[in-house]
Each structure stands twice: as structure tokens, then as C-alpha cells.
Design a protein around this nucleic acid. Structure first.
Lengths: 170, 170
DNA sequence: GGCTCTGAGTTCGTCAAGTGAACTCAGAGC
DNA sequence: GCTCTGAGTTCACTTGACGAACTCAGAGCC
């Protein structure tokens, strides 16, 4: 099983920490399948065509990290087996998977939208990710955002100095 | 340089395709730095502590994929060098990086919010990712979304059959 | 003109991670 | 007793990452 360490620089932001959990090969594809409803080892393996050894490792890592839980079940005329279900912590990775999907749909497909469409369960309208602020403005992208760094151990933020925030290289 | 192929299953959704571009080790951390304003080889290398060989490969892959452009510049008393700037295609990966950051802030940090805060440039309010639908509803998460598969080559969608969508395993 | 300094790589030996194929193991059914 | 199946584990091989050393081009200094 993959051991999650602090070796990556987490001091600047949490991206590296999250990648320590979901950044290995196949991890995010396993999650994609989980979000599509897949729960069983054999189904993950069939859909992804990943080697059993790696799948075993990725599932075990997710269980260890609290992203999936291992739940016993007993199917018709079969012995007891386990299935893997998303926890709340795992469900909260949904935006990450959607972000990857939206980018792929925009830049890698045929321009017709990707093979999977997401709809609001209540109203049926297409669903997308949006950058919003707490004053309820809808932002256009990275240029509308200013990043500030909070020094370790304090509750205060200061502006980034050496690294200009994204607007400076428009 | 990494060669991007179609070998990963793109038929089910675009996640695998996007991961073919940004899924290798260090790729998303290079992008994180780019979004913080880093442009030069030596700065990426210093901030990430990644080996030069890998950094060279990741930057070259991004340039080849149109995520970064290589722009010559001439600094004070230095010979001409190149810097790497985000293209529109690259800037559109911002939600992916923010999604990773938000999850890390929520589950890996001290609960005080992560080391980097994002604010709306216009109004200063905190910025976050949200799932929204075209009827302007704000969704809570994966359970509010229904995924439908569009068969290859058609413009129509049908409901997923074998793999139940996420609400079925609440 | 020779020497050094620096940014931006490239090369290389070593080690970790992923791959496909073969092997294991436990229970259900015949 | 024999076979079947899901879920792994083991193994030989290949690919990818690592750190250290080497290269290369131009600027500045003497």
C-alpha cells in the first residue's frame, strides 16, 4: 500500500497534500468509476483495465485515507465479499473529478461535449463548476482571483511577494 | 518528453484524457506554481525541488500540449532565455487546481483554512468552487447530480445502465 | 583572449512504481 | 472430489523518478 508522507512541500498550499492521496496513477480514475456507481473490485478492474496489483493498492490506500469504506456484502449463492463505497470525504472529491472532466470535454473531445453529461437531479438542467465569491459574484477565471499567503502558525494573511499573482502575467 | 496517447479509456469520459496531460507526477504542482505567477525554469525548480530532468519533461509536455507557451525574454545583463506562460487552455485548468486545494484545506490542514487564500479581485470576498446548474441552482454535491452517457457518434444521451449514478448508493 | 559565473538543460546509474501473466485461496455448487 | 469465481499476491520485466555530474552559450571581468 502506498504510504502517504509529508515529503512534498505542503507549506505553500494544499495541492501537494491532496495529490499525495489522489495523485498516483489510476487513483482519480478509480474515483471516477466510484462516482459512476462502481463498488466491486471486479467491476473496477473490468472498466479500467488496470492491473489487479495496482487496483488492490489504490483501493487499500483510499480505505486507509478514509476516502472509501470497505463494506461486506453477500450476493446470491456467493460467499461474503467486500465492496468499496465513497465516504463523505470521498464524495467531496467530486469537484476535482468534474474539473478534470470539463477540461477534457472542452479541449480533447469533438467539441460536442464529452461522453458523459451531468444534470441537476431536481430540475434536469446541465451542471457545471463555477468560481464564485462569498458576495455571490460569478468569476470568469484565474485572472479574477487574487491569492494571498497565510504565514505558518498565524491566522493572518499577507499578499504574495516574490511570486506575483496570476493577473500580472495576463 | 512524455508522449500523450489514446491508450487510456476515453470512451467513458474525459477524465482519463485530461489525466494524460496533467496526470503525471509534478504536472499539477508545476501548474500550481504557474498560477502563482512563476514563469522561469529556475523558479519552478527552486519552489518545487523537482529534478531538472523531470521539470524539463513536464514543461516540454505542457508546451507541446498548448498549456504553456515558451516566450523569449532578455533580462538585465543576461543572455536571452525563455519563460513559460499559461495559455488560455492552461488557465482553464484553474478549477482543477482549486478543487485539489479546497479538498486539501478541508481534510488535510489544521481546520483553519489552508496556507493560501483566494479572494475575488473586485470585491475581496473569499472565492470557492461551486456546482451550479443552468437554471442557477446551487448544488450540494455528487448526490444532486445525475450522470448520463452519450453513445459515441450521436448527439443524444441515454441514462447509464450498468453503473448506477451516484444517488443510488447514498 | 582566457577565465569564471549562471540559467537551462542533458546524461547516467540507481531505485521505485507500473505491467501482464501466472499462482493462490476460500467458499458455492455440481 | 472437482470446478468455478472474485479477490488478491507473486514475479520478471519495463518504465519513470531521483540525485549528482556534466554540458553549453552568452555576459562580465581581468
Amino acid at each position: 500500500m502506498a504510504v502517504i508522507t509529508n515529503e512534498m512541500d505542503r507549506s505553500r498550499c494544499s495541492v501537494a497534500g491532496t495529490l499525495a492521496v489522489v495523485g498516483e496513477k489510476w487513483s482519480l480514475l478509480v474515483l471516477r468509476e466510484a462516482f459512476l456507481g462502481v463498488r466491486r473490485f471486479a467491476d473496477f478492474q473490468r472498466n479500467l483495465e488496470v492491473s489487479r496489483a495496482v487496483l488492490t493498492d489504490r483501493l487499500a490506500t483510499f480505505v486507509e485515507q478514509g476516502v472509501l469504506t470497505r463494506v461486506p456484502y453477500h450476493a446470491d449463492g456467493q460467499r461474503e465479499r467486500h465492496e468499496y463505497r465513497l465516504t463523505t470525504k470521498g464524495l467531496d472529491l467530486y469537484p476535482t473529478v468534474v474539473a478534470l472532466m470539463e477540461w477534457g470535454d472542452r479541449y480533447l473531445g469533438d467539441g460536442q461535449g464529452g461522453p458523459i453529461a451531468l444534470q441537476h437531479r431536481d430540475c434536469g438542467a446541465p451542471v457545471r463548476l463555477a468560481l464564485v465569491c462569498d458576495d455571490d459574484h460569478r468569476l470568469d477565471g484565474a485572472y479574477d482571483v487574487e491569492a494571498t499567503v497565510r504565514p505558518r502558525g498565524t491566522g493572518r494573511y499577507r499578499a504574495i511577494e516574490k511570486a506575483p499573482s496570476s493577473h500580472t502575467h495576463r
